[in-house]
Design a protein around this nucleic acid. Sequence first.
DNA 1: ATCCTGACGCTAT
DNA 2: AATAGCGCCAGGA
Length: 104
Amino acid sequence: MPWDQEAYAEAVLALVERVPRGRVTTYGAIAEHLTGLGLPRGPRTVGRVMSLHGGGVPWWRVVRADGSLPPSHGDEARAAYLEEGTPLRGTGRVDMPAAYWQPR
DNA sequence: ATCCTGACGCTAT
DNA sequence: AATAGCGCCAGGA
């Protein structure tokens, strides 16, 4: 039986909603967290969920593990970072040690 | 089954 | 910093 994508998508979105203003988390971190909750999927699957259903949550607070942004995030995300005071490193890159929020 | 394509991650160059 | 290769998970043709 196929895995419950509906439940997984809900879990991902619920988690993204908990990322505080000015902080970010990663696709991989979300995947690992949910794996711990008994929903074993990979980072790519999280990215897929965001691509399809991320519209209703703070999608700009989810970045790659190295702090770089998926091209799809665009300038919209950068504007949001300046607005929320997200720690940045250079242009269009997040200062991970400072901004990383561990899913909990 | 096979091939291609992603809002990924890691290592090597 | 940028690029390339490979592993990975899912979905579509």
